[in-house]
Structures are given as C-alpha cells and as structure tokens.
C-alpha cells in the first residue's frame, strides 16, 4: 500500500493525542488551571492536528461533513462521529479543569472512553479489510490501542502505567509483524483464485492491461523501501518501545521525559510507515505483483 504521509501523520499524532486525552479524562494527572491548559493544548493539538492531516488526502475535503452520516455500516464514518463526540466531551471536561479548577467526573470518564473509541474505530478501518491480509486481524486494534495508551501514559507522566504498557505494546508489535509476514500466504488468495484458471495449470501474468502505470498500481502495489524493512523494524522497536522504557527507569527529569516522548513518537511513525509500506493488497495478483 502507498504510505501516504497524511495518513501516517494522522494515525501517529492522533493516536498519541487521544491516548493523552484518555488519561486526562480519568484525572491522571488531576491537573487544573494553567497546568491543565498546557496538557489539554498538547492533547487537542495532537488529536485535532492528526484529524486535519487526514483530510489532506481527500479528493473533495469540502464534502467531509457527509462522512458523519453512515455510522451504521462504515468504520470511517464511525471514526468521524466518535472523534467529534470525544473531543466535545473532553472540551467540556477541559473547560472545568482550566477555568473552574473542577474535575467533572462524568464528561471526563465518557470522554476517556470516547478517546479510546476513536483509536479503536481508526484501527478497524484497516482491520476490516480482507483485501489486505496483513491488516485483517484482531491484533491490529489491540496494537493500536496499546500504542495509544502507552504513548498517552508517557505524555501524561504516568510512569508506572507507561512502564507496564510500553512492553505490552512492544510485544504486540512483534506478534503483529510475525503474524503479518505469513498473512498473505495464509489468506488463500493467489493467482489461481484471482483468475479462476488454476485448474489448467500454473498461472503467470503475461501482459498488463496497459504499458503505463495506473491508480491501482500506485495506490496498492507500492514497493518502495521494503528492502529496509528489517532495519526499520529495529528502529521502530528501539525508539518506540525500548529507549522510552530505559529513559523512564533512570531517575526522572523533565528533559529525559521529553526525550522519551520524542523517541516514542519517532519509533511509532517508523512503525506506521511500515504498516502501510509492507501491506500487500490482493489486487496486485492481477498484475503478477504484490
């Protein structure tokens, strides 16, 4: 799949932002006044910034409001609805925390639930696609949720939670990669089933429909950088999970905390790039490519 920068930025930043909103909604940390303002500004900046970035790849962003209508059937529509609901609830909670030094439990808890809901619906957009066997697993939402919760705990300064969640997310990440590497072969879709000609013999793509490229090849049969896959996995694992854990284990300082956050976000961005770049769509079979 084509690793569109807008989607990588969106899922990385908004995952982090909604993760932070989750912990803030639970009152961890229970901040008020200017401190609360700073926390909520970072959280909303990441979450909303990510959502805005996701509209950059739309053909007609001016019609984006229509995406709120099909929540009965579409995970993308559900994501839109849940994200606005979560942002409104957390906005209300932030209002109380910043201006009235209050901790309104109900909107806080509902907002925290909504923040997790956003991450879950985002992950389901990918996990639902049978056409991309690497994504089509319950491990995808599990990984997205774990990363978001761990990153949010890191940003919220919840060291003990972060120290539990970062290893969990790291383990899920490795499991997701291991399962993903055999997913295409295990899906049962191959040249024979794609063409229905397997009964005659071994099918080989002889000529593509056109000599030039097309939308399908650009969007779904993207092979750039797959050769660096192993190195990038090492970088993602090291920066995203291992280094932040080490930085949290040494005596706390704000500088090291900031370094841990930056390292984590960079590692997750690398992991998210691989999420798209390594994903193979079954339509590639019709072109004899994957």
């Amino acid at each position: 799949m084509h690793p569109a920068p807008s989607v990588i930025i969106f899922t990385t930043l908004s995952g982090l932002g909604f993760g932070l909103l989750f912990w803030l909604g639970l009152g961890l940390p229970a901040v008020t006044g200017w401190t609360a303002f700073a926390f909520f500004a970072i959280a909303f900046g990441l979450a909303v910034g990510g959502l805005v970035a996701s509209t950059f790849h739309l053909g007609h962003p001016e019609r984006a409001l229509k995406a709120f209508t099909q929540w009965r059937s579409s995970w993308l529509s559900r994501e839109a609805v849940v994200s606005v609901a979560a942002l409104c609830l957390m906005g209300l909670y932030a209002l109380g925390a910043v201006f009235f030094a209050a901790s309104w439990t109900l909107p806080g808890w509902l907002g925290a639930l909504g923040a997790l809901g956003v991450v879950f619906t985002t992950s389901m957009i990918y996990a639902q696609l049978r056409t991309v066997p690497r994504w089509h697993t319950a491990l995808t939402p599990a990984l997205f949720l774990a990363i978001s919760l761990a990153g949010g705990a890191l940003l919220a300064g919840q060291v003990s939670f972060a120290l539990a969640l970062l290893p969990l997310a790291g383990v899920l990440q490795v499991l997701w990669w291991l399962r993903g590497d055999g997913a295409f072969a295990a899906s049962g879709t191959d040249m024979a089933s794609a063409t229905g000609l397997g009964d005659i013999g071994a099918v080989r793509a002889f000529e593509p429909p056109h000599t030039g490229s097309n939308y399908l090849l650009r969007e779904f049969v993207h092979v750039v950088g797959r050769k660096h896959s192993l190195r990038l996995r090492g970088i993602a694992l090291g920066l995203g999970y291992v280094l932040p854990i080490i930085l949290l284990l040494v005596p706390f300082s704000h500088l090291l905390g900031l370094l841990a956050v930056i390292s984590h976000a960079t590692g997750i961005a690398a992991s998210r790039w691989l999420f798209f770049a390594e994903a193979e769509h079954v339509v590639g079979l019709y072109y004899g490519k994957r």
Partner: peptide, 12 residues
Amino acid sequence: CIGCGLCAWACP
C-alpha cells in the same frame, strides 16, 4: 463522494 479511496481499498 469525498474521494477518500477506502472503497478502492476494500475491493479485491
């Protein structure tokens, strides 16, 4: 259509 492309992703 907002041109999000998700339907093309879903089509095998």
